[in-house]
């Protein structure tokens, strides 16, 4: 791990001022992903601005029913917050299925949004990676790609987005608030993470020097239930091979509104409007769920080792929907 300079900010204005537009500077909050990557020598900040003292640790229920989450709320505190447990259980389940207790105790909401891929080619500076070093090639395309994405890939990058929390938020709908040299702006959650396309090094809609200050969840869908199902090799402490966040509101025996988001299979936290359309107004039956699953994965592209993810993701969708619609 190379050395860097360190500065501690007391408030948002100081943090963004300290950062400036400096390409070589990074904000650090929990640090569980950033320090990991600096140790791997795949991120080489020359300066870290510590934002842990910023007053962004609160959750606030807004009058319109939304929930405003401070950037520094830890994954643990968010998962167990009474509003989240009551109104956004899919998010609580997603959070608690991620990482480990220790990591969740430290990792922050904004840090989780900023989490970077676990692709081993990305994580090894000796290997080619277009995301880390544009133009160097993609080691995973011809390499081992069992854990890689089947949705949203390009010929330049098939790295999978690792977050569980973001999948829950993707299903719920949310807004990311950032503050930076250009002032404050809101970004819809679904537009925040970018597809790799020709520029896999661009992972999100964040400008240099901008800092995430809040994530605000949409007001809960009236009468909706949620469930997060994560599938992986072992039972805990592993990134998803496929996961599904399902939020469903019923109208009698029919599905009034459904939200489906997928993890472990997309190059970004994957919202499936196709699956949602296939569910809307339909009876909550296995047949409906399977149609939704087919719709969700219709555009999936497999590589040598990850073809199993396509049926696995379908299974995650079907079971998550069965579970959420069976809840009494």
């Amino acid at each position: 791990m190379r050395n860097f300079d360190y500065q501690r900010a007391g408030d948002v204005a100081e943090a963004t001022a300290l950062h400036g537009n400096d390409h070589s500077a990074d904000f650090i909050a929990g640090g569980t992903n950033l320090i990991d990557m600096v140790k791997l020598d795949i991120m080489r900040p020359q300066r870290l601005v510590d934002v842990n003292r910023l007053p962004l640790t609160d959750l606030e229920s807004l009058d319109d029913g939304r929930l405003k989450i401070g950037a520094l709320v830890t994954n643990t505190d968010l998962a167990y917050h009474e509003r989240v447990l009551a109104d956004y259980p899919v998010l609580s389940e997603a959070l608690l299925s991620g990482a480990s207790t220790q990591l969740r105790n430290v990792a922050t909401t904004a840090g989780n949004v900023m989490q970077r891929t676990r692709c081993p080619y990305f994580r090894n500076p000796a290997r080619p990676c277009n995301k880390r070093e544009p133009g160097s090639g993609c080691g995973a395309l011809e390499g081992i790609n069992r854990n890689h994405a089947v949705l949203g890939t390009s010929e330049h990058c098939i790295a999978v987005h690792p977050s569980d929390m973001c999948v829950g938020m993707q299903a719920l709908g949310a807004t990311i608030t950032v503050e930076g040299p250009g002032g404050t702006r809101d970004i819809p959650f679904e537009e925040y993470h970018l597809l790799p396309g020709d520029t896999p090094e661009r992972e999100h809609d964040l400008n240099d020097g901008e800092l995430i200050t809040h994530v605000t969840l949409d007001a809960p869908i009236d009468g909706a239930r949620g469930h997060y199902l994560k599938l992986r090799d072992r039972m805990s402490y592993e990134f998803a091979l496929a996961s599904c966040a399902a939020v469903v509101a019923m109208d009698g025996d029919a599905i009034r509104e459904a939200r489906i988001a997928l993890g472990g299979v997309g190059t970004k936290p994957w919202r499936s409007h196709e699956a949602e359309a296939a569910l809307s107004g339909q009876p909550a039956t296995e047949e409906t769920f399977e149609k939704a699953a087919e719709a969700a994965m219709a555009g999936a592209v497999a590589h040598r080792d990850n073809a199993f993810k396509i049926p696995l993701a379908k299974q995650a969708i079907v079971r998550a929907l069965a579970t959420v619609t069976a809840q009494g």
Binding site: R118, P120, N147, D233, R234, M235, S236, Y237, E238, F239
Partner: peptide, 10 residues
Amino acid sequence: ADYIVPVHAD
């Protein structure tokens, strides 16, 4: 993380 061994939950 990538070399999988059993954990408590298994």
